[in-house]
Design a protein around this nucleic acid. Structure first.
Lengths: 117, 117, 117, 117
DNA sequence: GTGGTCTAGACCACG
DNA sequence: GTGGTCTAGACCACG
């Protein structure tokens, strides 16, 4: 997997997992790839994957079953969406439009480069 | 000044200075606050302010006059606007709308919390 | 059966068995549930039950009769009580009261939530 | 520092820090030992200390000031006490008295070994 | 097999 | 100086 430099890898892994959940590829309650397996697949240290799983567990999106691995919780998708949407609506969007305004831009100025609005 | 924890302070200072320039409070060619003064005003290490001024200098927005301090260049506002707008249109906006779409949100969902669109 | 996450499952099984013995539900010398049966009843790996039985055997509380299964020893209840009481009095209780003291709490502070003192 | 084997070291460090806070040795708002310094003092890897500090930060007991180290929050002692007391009253105490009861012991049986009740 | 903890050591961003 | 991230590698408990 390709990582970019601006964001810590473990956060990019969190984003990756969240995307799998939100897009329904990894359904609620299903088992997620074992730490070491995902680490190998992503050419990353298992530590780094573990850290991401840990954070997701703290958010109630994953749970560990002893000796059996990590599983998505029953409401993993719901929770993920809620958290992501909330941050988007309450924090990212206001900042986005504030900057747009400051730069003297309007929605129209963006449409060329941002099809699909 | 209040800083948030997610973003490095020196970047927040860059943002602050850019805002002053774009909004015309600090006009082209004018002298900017001395490093130590701004540092004191913001309760921040002068190192940190220097780092921000350095970055702005690299972008042709500021220049040092030895023994006289930092000044905005003749086209500081123009350059700032250009750089910020370009990054906004080419990078931030597409990412923003892509995520909005991924989360199943529409512009309407944001209007309550984002007045001034 | 419900397990909590903090304690290894096999220890929780040991606790469960000890409780059965101390409360007289499983009398001295009686046969205990076969490993696989208890495992099934508890929705647990037989490995895990075996591990608990093993530990109890090491403490002289259970014994294996080849081809016949696990049995409680003749003095299983006596031994269990002795071991548990000893650990309770010599280790758990002192630690408990020391912490209570450190936290500025008294027995009275606990009575509401701990009926049956 | 001496550690016992039953509990992960990083948790023992959390306990150590909590004790310093609760006993008032490390007052609210004060700076705590730098990660590497405490690690050296305890003959432990800095990773391990960082992990403990991280957990305390998540509980609102510590905060990082960029480039300046970890500090106790303004209500660190209050929070610590609250968390520890809560767990003691709601979880440890009920379990303690339940086991005491199961073992046929009374408070009196403990007094010899647990002076200062 | 599966996760959890720990170490030694490197390198980096920030102040 | 101070924390943050990452790796390689070891060892362990649990199932």
């Amino acid at each position: 997997m390709e990582f970019h430099a601006e964001k810590p890898i473990y956060r990019q892994i969190i984003d990756f997992v969240s995307a799998r959940i939100v897009e329904g590829e990894w359904p609620d309650g299903s088992r997620v790839p074992p730490v070491r397996e995902l680490a190998a697949r992503m050419s990353v240290n298992s530590h780094t994957v573990l850290r991401a799983y840990d954070a997701l567990q703290a958010d109630g999106i994953m749970e560990v079953r002893r000796g059996m691995g990590y599983y998505l919780t029953a409401d993993a998708r719901e929770r993920s969406l809620q958290m992501l949407r909330r941050e988007f609506i309450e924090s990212k969007a206001p900042a986005f439009f504030a900057e747009m305004h400051r730069l003297g831009l309007s929605i129209e100025d963006l449409t060329t480069d941002s099809p699909g609005i």
